[in-house]
Design a protein around this nucleic acid. Structure first.
Length: 463
RNA sequence: GGCGCCAUAGCCAAGCGGUAAGGCAGAGGUCUGCAAAACCUUCAUCCCCGGUUCGAUUCCGGGUGGCGCCUCCA
């Protein structure tokens, strides 16, 4: 498989550190609020990456953290008149609620920063020992950027250019404007932990270094996140980690593009964001996943309700094909058409894999799935051999499953009233009382159900 | 100022050297009591100007127009 490595700025063959295994870390949410559609993209992208790697036979260890201590957590907890801990607990729960609905599988591990304070402190201590960090009299610890020669290698920034543009905050006791905080001395009323530098809490960048290395090792395969994390967050992670261990940190860096609104990055600060929770009130979140997968992950994509609507319609087409395959009528004998269909299946699978092998090109892979859907729809328009039907069904489920689509076994429950009306309509049709039949159909429509007449009889469908 | 990305039909989006996948929407048709679903048909020469090449949407240069990072941000 080829993936685009931000570090080298080109596509590279993915060769795992340990054959057959992939270790992968993705930056997770700061749990101070519901997450928005823009935040959701990396969750979906890296979940899809993980699903695909597993499907291709890798044993994947996928770690995604929760940042549960930082300035935003503290501020929000104060606003809500609650504790940082309680706030974190709550929004971790809310994260799972939304992520589940987006078809995002639980990571192998979801470490929390506050549960890895020990590792963080020893990492900071190591950096001080090695001369890459220094403590100030106030009890803050900063990383000395100039002490790490490779600084800027991920983002392609020249350290002196950065220096010119750096914001200088006169309050900070930094030796160099580029230096960043590893440990922040506690202010009154803030959660804090004991450390060799006094009570305090970790900086944001160090927690990811500490958690990823303690769970995946000093060198691991893939590190992912949104493009906005390239600088400074990931650049800083590299500096801290490599300065401390003297070994390469992540081997491949994957960064997803933004979700835009009217061509502008969806973000909290621009106040142009939509939370996943809110969108869930209007749409099935599977449509949101479909919308995201319709674009290769590195490209930006505009979010709008119209786009979700389109994705929903497209998803419906795949769902129908899956259902038709499941309800296909079995013929007594096999024919040459069965064999042709089975041969076609191989082709779809190959092309799907080729698309995904090319830097996770889900948009291209979906194209293959739609061609598959059409072929399947045509194929099952009359009774077919069970072997071909089963093969088609299995492959369709497998491939949509790799994308995390159509996974839910939503056993459709319809109210008895609606089922009774459906029966009455059917009786009216038999009696050629079409006016009555249409009346029933309209009434069902008002209740939110569509009627579809299939070879297996009439079916209800939620609108 | 430094670093970087993007420009393909009404909308979305693959392709990236040999004359444009797929989806949504639209039009016509088949099927249907009528619908729905499904199927068939139809719907683009790829922002502009140069260059390289037998041949460019695809490579190079220059424009124009969008966007991002350099500050918390997925």
């Amino acid at each position: 498989m080829q993936i685009y490595n931000t570090m080298t700025r080109r596509k590279e063959e993915l060769i795992p550190l340990v054959p057959g295994q992939i270790s992968m870390y993705a930056c997770g949410p700061t749990v101070y609020n519901f997450f928005h559609i823009g935040n959701a993209r990396p969750f979906i992208v890296f979940d899809t990456m993980r699903r695909y790697l597993e499907y291709r036979g890798y044993q994947v260890r996928f770690v995604q953290n929760f940042t549960d201590i930082d300035d935003k957590m503290i501020r929000r907890a104060n606003e809500e008149e609650t504790t940082v801990k309680a706030l974190g607990e709550r929004f971790i729960k809310e994260y799972y609620h939304d992520a589940d609905a987006l078809g995002v599988r639980r990571a192998s591990e979801n470490p929390r920063a506050t549960e890895h304070i020990g590792e963080i402190i020893s990492l900071v201590a190591t950096l001080i020992e090695k001369g890459n960090a220094y403590a100030t009299p106030d009890g803050d610890v900063y990383f000395s950027v100039r002490s790490f020669p490779g600084y800027g290698k991920l983002s392609g920034q020249n350290i002196d250019d950065l220096e010119n543009g750096a914001r200088v905050d006169p309050d900070e006791a930094k030796r160099d404007p580029l230096d960043f905080a590893l440990w922040k001395a506690a202010k009154p009323g803030e959660p804090s932990w004991d450390s060799p530098w006094g009570k305090g809490r970790p900086g944001w960048h160090i927690e990811c270094s500490a958690m990823s290395m303690s769970l995946l090792g000093e060198t691991f395969d893939i590190h992912g996140g949104g493009q906005d994390l390239v600088f400074p967050h990931h650049e800083n992670e590299i500096a801290q980690s490599e300065a401390a261990t003297g070994k390469p940190f992540a081997r491949y860096w994957m960064h997803n593009g933004y979700i835009n609104v009217d061509n502008q990055k969806m973000s909290k600060s621009l106040n142009n964001f939509f939370t996943v929770r809110d969108i869930a009130k209007e749409f099935d979140l599977e449509a949101v996943r479909m919308f995201m997968l319709g674009v290769q992950y590195r490209n930006p994509v505009n979010f709008s309700r119209e786009m979700i609507q389109q994705a929903q319609s497209a998803l419906e087409r795949l769902r129908t094909a899956k259902e038709r395959l499941a309800e296909a009528q079995v013929a007594a004998a096999e024919t040459s058409e069965d064999a042709a269909f089975i041969a076609q299946l191989e082709d779809f699978k190959t092309r799907f894999n080729e698309a995904m092998d090319d830097d996770l090109n889900t948009a291209d892979a979906l194209g293959v799935l739609f061609e598959f859907a059409r072929a399947a729809n045509t194929f099952v328009s009359e009774p077919r051999g069970s072997k071909a039907i089963e093969a088609g069904k299995a492959l369709f489920s497998e491939l949509t499953g790799v994308l995390g689509l159509l996974g839910r076994e939503k056993a459709e429950e319809f109210p008895a009233e609606a089922l009774a009306m459906l029966e009455e309509r059917q009786a009216a049709r038999k009696a050629k009382d079409f006016a009555r039949a249409d009346q029933m159909r309209d009434a069902l429509k008002d209740m939110g159900y569509a009627v579809e007449d299939t070879v297996n009889g009439p079916k209800l469908k939620k609108l």
